[in-house]
Design a binder for these strands. Structure first.
Length: 585
RNA sequence: GCCUCUGUAGCUCAGCGGACAGAGCACCGGUCUUCUAAACCGAUGGUCGCAGGUUCGAGUCCUGCCAGGGGCGCCA
């Protein structure tokens, strides 16, 4: 009989692999003994069962029935009889219709408590990203206005993804891509100029296509306070730069309020200045994917007639249709100005050249077709787009229940005309933690109605408080314990009961959750998990007392040690979600 | 016209091809001389939108419908 040693890191996923290997080896032994016919053993993963009493892992032997020409129950028994000793495994049972159920050894769970406390925040860190670099590009709003509610979801999801990648072992860079050169920025500058002139007492009406937002009035007022009459002589460029500066300060402050900071800011303009867009275009041309024409090669009669009617001169086209696009795309307009497609391709090519193993891009679904065109462009350059992964976010809106209508309706925060819903408004209405949690706790491809009343409710109706309260309750125990002079040195963890071990068991899933979140780009998984873990915690807190007259001193010590680990675990999860861990509420 | 997402309890949502489909809320009934009850315990509640298919096994995969949301299309 062989002894399979425990992997050094003890995330459940690694135990899964070990158990799977042990089962496979048992099957081989059975084949070797002649109890099972020879067949190639398919990989059937072990998985956590759905209900209690079915152990911690389930292996469905039903999948082998046909190959082995035996009943699933018989196969399961054959495996169990030949299973090597596993020092983390407890009971192993066979259950109809052919499951093998295996539990984690209690002793193993107890050891994890000390292991968690010894390793601290690094306990759950995975090595799947060790030595690899990842980039998350998110928010990427142009500095023409404040961060909106839509951007907020992007910000939260992007930052959570970055934190999860870090937890998985990647070196992560957070990047913000923006364009301050377009027509919109010129209009922004001119809008600020007009607002400034208004502040100086001139009759300078703001055209309808200019920025109506009241925030420009605030900026104008500040400018006037600082520079006064001398502003009359400045042109729109001055105001554009001024507006941009203030906007970026504002954007960064708004993001910082929900615990988000970017490492790098990439300006689209730099791609023009470095002439990268032209070298990218040349490379695509050399590869034969670019042509000049008045209309695209596959245009039908209607399109050609339309082009003639508009009198377009020849433009530079990218033959994206040869990569699967429904039509070709213009890269450089007939007036010589590139469309947004060219810099987008150049930017992503630049990103790939910087050598990231993973480059996550968080985008709204309005970028769906554009993202595909960028991918075709990368292929046209002869580059491999595989490292680029896009998380598409569906719409988000802030809503409030309308009792009269009997339905949710969108919150129109605009106290002042022209102002839209901003992240700042949202945080003011709710809280940074509520925004972080609720913006995260939904699949990116589901639409999200952010209920501004629900998210601040202080009950277990609201996961924000429910999760944080688990941490607060732990903290409370330690405050009280310190006052009474009770500590947990030399705690004997064999005094812990079934409930405490149930919590540890659940907590050990964190590694799996992180891995799954990272592999499938589903950062919301961690939010759901945190709520589940809190749901395991609260009944235990109720039942398993530390500082109670009927609890023996040694038991109290052991329990205190348990709560120390629980506290560390909730702290870790809250950090992972960018939320605060309050000591009291 | 094309693309995309969603449809699971009254509501908001989980659910990696596996065992009797889960949680919170709401509703009903309980629990504070014990580390804060912002909590806990219990009960009620389901033809997983519909129809086929693949599979030993489908809420999960495939196809087609139905319903609802969002986007793109026009050299922006």
């Amino acid at each position: 009989m062989r002894i399979v040693r425990l992997p050094r890191k003890s995330a459940l996923e690694q135990l899964n692999k070990t158990l799977e290997a042990a089962i496979e080896s048992a099957l081989r032994t059975a084949q070797h003994d002649g109890d099972l016919p020879q067949f190639e053993i398919p990989r059937i993963p072990v998985s956590p069962p759905k209900r209690a009493g079915q152990g911690d892992w389930a292996y469905p032997a039903m999948g082998l029935a046909r190959l082995a020409r035996k009943s699933p129950l018989d196969i399961a028994r054959l495996i169990v009889d030949r299973l090597p000793m596993l020092d983390f495994a407890g009971k192993t049972e066979v259950a109809p219709p052919g499951f093998i159920n295996c539990t984690i050894a209690d002793d193993y769970l107890r050891k994890q408590i000390d292991a968690i406390l010894a390793a601290g925040q690094s306990f759950f860190r995975l090595d799947i990203g060790a030595g690899k670099r990842a980039q998350v590009e998110f928010v990427s709003a142009n500095p023409s206005g404040p961060i909106t509610i839509g951007h907020s979801r992007n910000a939260v999801v992007g930052d959570a993804m970055a934190r999860l990648l870090e937890a998985a072992g990647y070196a992560v860079q957070r990047e913000y891509y923006y364009n301050n050169a377009g027509n919109q920025m010129i209009i922004l500058g001119k809008s600020l100029q007009l607002r400034t002139l208004q502040e100086l007492g001139e009759d300078a009406p703001l055209p309808a296509d200019h920025y109506q937002g009241e925030y420009l009035v605030d900026i104008a007022r500040d400018l006037v306070a600082e520079r006064g009459e001398s502003l009359r002589g400045e042109n729109w460029r001055f105001f554009k730069d001024a507006a941009e500066q203030v906007m970026f300060r504002w954007i960064k402050r708004s993001l910082a309020a929900i615990n988000i900071q970017h490492d790098a800011f990439f300006n689209e303009t730099s791609l023009f200045e470095s002439e990268q867009i032209w070298s990218v275009l040349d490379a695509m041309r050399e590869n034969g994917h670019v042509y000049q024409a008045a209309h695209w090669e596959g245009a039908d009669a209607d399109e050609i007639a339309d082009v003639r009617a508009k009198g377009y001169e020849p433009a530079v086209w990218f033959r994206s249709s040869s990569f699967g696009d429904e039509k070709d795309r213009v890269m450089v307009k007939s007036d010589g100005v590139p469309t947004y497609t060219l810099p987008d391709i150049a930017y992503h090519a630049d990103k790939l050249r910087r050598g990231f193993d993973i480059a996550v891009n968080v985008l709204g679904t309005d970028h769906f077709s554009q993202a595909a065109v960028v991918e075709y462009g990368i292929r046209a350059l002869g580059m491999e787009p595989a490292p680029i992964e896009v998380i598409f976010l569906q719409m988000v809106r802030a809503v409030r229940w309308n009792e009269g209508l009997g339905e949710f309706e969108a919150v129109k925060q605009s106290k002042r005309a022209g102002e839209f819903d901003t992240l700042d408004d949202l945080v003011a209405m709710t809280s940074a933690d509520a925004v972080r949690y609720h913006m995260l706790a939904r699949s990116p491809n589901s639409q999200l109605d952010f209920d501004v009343d629900q998210v601040v409710k202080q009950s277990n109706e609201n996961p924000v408080y429910y999760i944080q309260n688990a941490y607060v309750r732990c903290a409370g125990i330690f405050r009280e314990a310190a006052e009474r002079g009770i500590c947990d040195t030399d705690a004997d963890l064999s005094l812990l009961g079934e409930s405490e071990l149930r919590f540890v068991r659940k907590a050990l899933e964190i590694g799996n959750v992180i891995e799954q979140a990272v592999r499938h780009y589903e950062p919301q998984k961690i939010a759901f998990f945190a709520q589940e873990l809190a749901g395991v915690f609260h009944p235990i807190y109720d039942e398993v007392r530390v500082l109670h007259s009927e609890v023996p001193a040694e038991t109290a010590k052991a329990r205190l040690r348990f709560y120390r680990a629980a506290k560390a675990i909730f702290r870790y999860l809250l950090d992972l979600m960018g939320m605060s861990a309050p000591e009291r509420m």
